[in-house]
Amino acid sequence: MIDKSALTFSMLRMANTARLPQFKNARGEPAHSQPDGSDWSLGEWCNAVTGELGEAANLIKKVQRGDLTLDDARAALAKEFADIVTYLDILAMRAGVDLGEATVDKFNEVSERVGCNVRL
């Protein structure tokens, strides 16, 4: 286990790479025929990200209409956000993108464009 606040994109990528070949579906069967998840297309991995984002959006909808308070929904939202990041890293990996590097580059590009001196 790691210090949760010390997680890096590299650590997540290593963990996703190690877990993919061991991942089981709800029936206890291997979820992927290829150990790197390449049996799923980019579209299927994108659907996984979008599905988790939809689950987060549904919780936020319930907060906005008053079914739940943000305090009530926070733990479930945290789990959905974690699912989103996990699937997004796998999608990026399958696309050959280093998510950490891409995030730093894009963050700094936007800071430059909007005249902000905050950089990663």
Rank of each mutant, 00 (worst) to 15 (best):
V85Q: 03
E80H: 07
R27G: 01
Y87L: 12
T69L: 13
R13H: 05
E109D: 12
I84Y: 10
T86Q: 10
Q34E: 15
D39E: 07
D67R: 10
S38H: 09
Q22Y: 03
A48K: 15
T17M: 06
A18H: 05
A73R: 05
Q34A: 15
A78E: 14
S33K: 11
C46G: 07
D89K: 00
N25Q: 02
G37E: 11
R19K: 09
A48Q: 15
E52G: 12
I60L: 13
L91I: 02
A75C: 07
L20E: 09
F81V: 13
K106Q: 03
C46I: 03
A57G: 10
A95T: 01
K79N: 11
E52W: 06
L77P: 08
A56P: 11
M93V: 02
E44W: 04
D72P: 13
A48T: 13
I60T: 02
A56M: 12
L59A: 09
V110P: 01
G54E: 09
G66A: 12
R74V: 08
V110M: 03
A102N: 02
D83R: 03
H32E: 07
Y87R: 09
E101M: 00
T103R: 00
L59E: 09
K24R: 12
C46L: 12
D83E: 14
L77T: 14
R65L: 02
T69P: 12
D89G: 01
W45E: 09
F81C: 13
K62Q: 15
N58I: 01
L42D: 06
R94L: 09
L12A: 01
P35I: 15
I90C: 08
G51C: 05
P21I: 15
V63D: 10
R13N: 03
A26V: 11
G43E: 10
E101Q: 06
S41A: 11
G28V: 01
P35W: 12
L99P: 01
F107P: 00
Y87S: 02
W40I: 06
L70R: 05
G100D: 00
E109I: 01
N58V: 06
Q22M: 15
L99I: 01
G54Q: 05
F107I: 01
D71C: 07
L68C: 14
E29Q: 07
G28D: 02
L20R: 15
E101R: 00
K62F: 08
E55H: 08
I90D: 08
S33F: 02
V49C: 12
H32A: 10
M11D: 08
A75K: 13
L88G: 14
T17N: 05
L20Y: 04
Q22N: 07
L68H: 11
